[in-house]
Amino acid sequence: MNFLEKIFEYPHRVKILKGIIYAVMVVLVILDFFIHRHHEFFFWDKIPGFSSVYGFISCVLIIVVSKVLGKWWLQKGEDYYD
């Protein structure tokens, strides 16, 4: 059993890992309120936590839009070209 398995094969350890990730997320957004910005090119550069919101929206948009396109149009059986 390698050391990666010692983490990923135990649900309670994976749970701790997830807890850490959530905590870091919160800390980052809080930090974002206090960080001095050197560059402000767009209006959203001033909004604390904007990149969290935008990152999440991007991710969900990519998944949903692609899946819809795939189901309705792009995805075909593996033997489509044979």
């Binding site: 997320m25 969290s52 919101v53 998944i63 795939g70 995805q75 075909k76 059986g77 489509y80 070209y81």
Partner: peptide, 27 residues
């Protein structure tokens, strides 16, 4: 950057059941 990455992970975690491979090809 870290905010974008972690929230992307959250999106992945929420949709994980829908993201597995499907035996199809794409046009």
């Amino acid at each position: 950057t870290l905010e974008i990455l972690l929230l992307t992970w959250l999106g992945f975690y929420i949709y994980i059941k829908k993201l597995g491979g499907e035996s199809t090809i794409s046009l």
